[in-house]
Nucleic acid binder design. Structure first.
Length: 481
RNA sequence: GUCCCGUUCGUCUAGCCAGGUCCAGGACACCGGGUUUUCAUCCCGGCAACAGGGGUUCGAAUCCCCUACGGGACGCCA
């Protein structure tokens, strides 16, 4: 590794939904590596996809990483001299560099419509031929380009990939990987809405922000040659690439929220200690040595080396995470133990939310914990509950709940008003009796038919817990059937 | 389909780079036993893996090749 330059690394989440365990995983290794080398860690928000953008997401990313006590030196929240740190605020920069490539003949405008591209792809799939852009607009005359532009024809900017030869990429963990240029097609750099794609924004920003090591997940390996070509087109030095293994579901596919709870907020709500989460994540791919499994972030900082990273994709095993958490709970001092419960379970803010929902249902306070346990627990016991409405098939029911989950996933602001709207809309669409719809949801999310008003209750419970319980009870129903 | 990456107990992994000390070590889970008036903790024990084949070598989990399997990528997503 380059000894001269100060180590600068970055994490580049896109604010599209729940902050993910994968983000924490990558952040951990970036953090450790930067600290170990007296370097700097940058948080850069990659908000270039307007359709998937969720306004609340950036704040949640920051909150989740703060929960884990992983701090960065530069970012949209703390500033820094290489800002702005949100890509949506850097559009002029990307535009300028894209124009630069066009003028150097290394990129070109493409007027192909999305329809044509998807037809092309379909045809390629049917014929079993090579996938990728066919280069239709690659050699348009400048008159043609200008006239199309004058007509305001929507266009994108594409990078001209070399037509032959091999593109070597250097991965710190895997060595040199040679990719045949024929495998690559002309990537879009600027979308028709003027926003850059990941490839352009990422390379430009990594360069301008003087990133020395790109530590990211393995799924990026196959995009790396595109990035290498971009670095070459700009005549910029490449950073060192370090691709970490991908976290996996039980079935070994890339970890996903469909098959696992992946939201950091979920684990926080469940009562996993941040120290335990970091320790667990560190164990995914890295080993401390000496048969030592329980160690602090500081201890990891002393011992960490990429040499001890293993490349097989580790399965995210919640059982082991919980065992680790248990070990950390054992070691909590009396004060920290009490503080944790007060802060996370019975904190004033949460209790205030419960006040109006629970007050009228108590004739003495000793009923509180028992009656409202679902406000404090993670998963519920569905044993003995008849969730499935009479006269509805399991298949139909599952379809409805899955659809509901999708809507909830995409909900940006988790509040009574929005929830109510989602429920009303769906109920109207499926035209079930209200009771057939609301009661199962109530059972699934609270484990009891005697709960405070549903929407208010769900609003208080929060997105992670509610979605997890819906998912969970669906699994329970499938197993039972 | 094409390309790329990977492959040690069910799971996380040590060992591999510098071949012998590995009939493969630790941890989770599981099973059994003990301590505990219950439960949990804790302690002890057990089960369980070098993907397959070929080569190199006196000797291969370790080096090389092939195959299989798993995964990822092939988007106006990141």
């Amino acid at each position: 590794m380059d000894q001269q330059k100060k180590v600068r690394v970055r994490i580049a989440p896109s604010p599209t939904g729940d902050p993910h365990v994968g983000l924490a995983y990558i952040t951990l290794f970036n953090y450790v590596f930067s600290k170990q080398n007296a370097g700097e860690l940058v948080l850069r928000i990659e908000d270039t996809d307007r359709t998937r953008y969720r306004r609340s997401s950036e704040e949640r990313i920051i909150r989740s990483l703060n929960w884990l006590n992983l701090k960065w030196d530069e970012g949209p929240d703390v500033g820094g001299k290489f800002g702005p740190y949100r890509q949506s605020e850097r559009l002029d920069i990307y535009k300028k560099y894209a124009e630069d490539l066009i003028s150097k003949g290394k990129a070109y405008r493409c007027f192909c419509t999305p329809e044509r591209l998807s037809q092309m792809r379909q045809k390629q799939k049917d014929e079993g031929s090579r996938f990728g852009y066919d280069g239709k607009c690659r050699n348009l005359s400048s008159e043609k380009v200008n006239s199309l532009l004058a007509q305001k024809t929507p266009s994108v900017v594409r990078l001209k990939m070399p037509e032959d030869g091999v593109i070597p990429i250097r991965d710190h963990l895997r060595g040199v990987i040679e990719i045949d240029a024929s495998q690559l097609d002309d990537q879009i750099l600027i979308k028709s809405d003027g926003f850059p794609t990941y490839h352009l924004a990422n390379v430009v920003d990594d360069h301008l922000m003087q990133i020395t090591h790109v530590i990211r997940a393995e799924e990026w390996i196959s995009s790396t040659p595109k990035h290498v070509v971009l670095y070459q087109a700009f005549s910029w030095p490449e950073p060192e690439f370090i691709h970490l293994p991908l976290l996996r579901n039980q079935d070994r596919s890339k970890i996903s929220k469909r098959k696992n709870p992946t939201s950091l907020d979920f684990y926080r709500r469940k009562g996993v200690l941040p120290e335990a989460m970091l320790n667990f994540l560190a164990l995914m791919g890295w080993s401390y040595g000496e048969d030592k499994e329980i160690f602090s972030l500081d201890q990891m900082l002393e011992k960490f080396s990429f040499k001890n990273v293993s490349l097989g994709g580790p399965i995210f095993d919640i059982q082991k995470l919980l065992w680790l958490n248990q070990q950390y709970i054992q070691d909590l001092s009396e004060d920290s133990f009490i503080k944790h419960i007060q802060k996370n379970l019975f904190n004033e803010g949460y209790l205030r939310n419960l006040y109006s929902l629970t007050k009228s249902r108590l004739n003495s306070f000793d009923q509180f914990v028992d009656k409202f346990s679902f406000f404090f627990s993670g998963e519920l016991d569905y044993q003995g509950l008849s969730i499935l409405p009479k006269n509805r098939s399991l298949t139909d029911f599952k379809k409805v709940i899955k659809n509901l989950l999708e809507r909830l996933d995409n909900l940006d602001n988790w509040d009574e008003k929005n929830l109510k709207e989602i429920f009303q809309n769906q109920l109207q669409e499926i035209a079930w009796k209200p009771k057939e719809y609301y009661m199962p949801i109530r059972l699934m999310t609270t484990g009891t038919k005697d709960s405070p008003p549903l929407v208010e209750t769900l609003a208080v419970l929060g997105s992670e817990i509610v979605r997890y319980r819906l998912q969970n009870s669906l699994t329970y129903l499938s197993k039972k059937a």
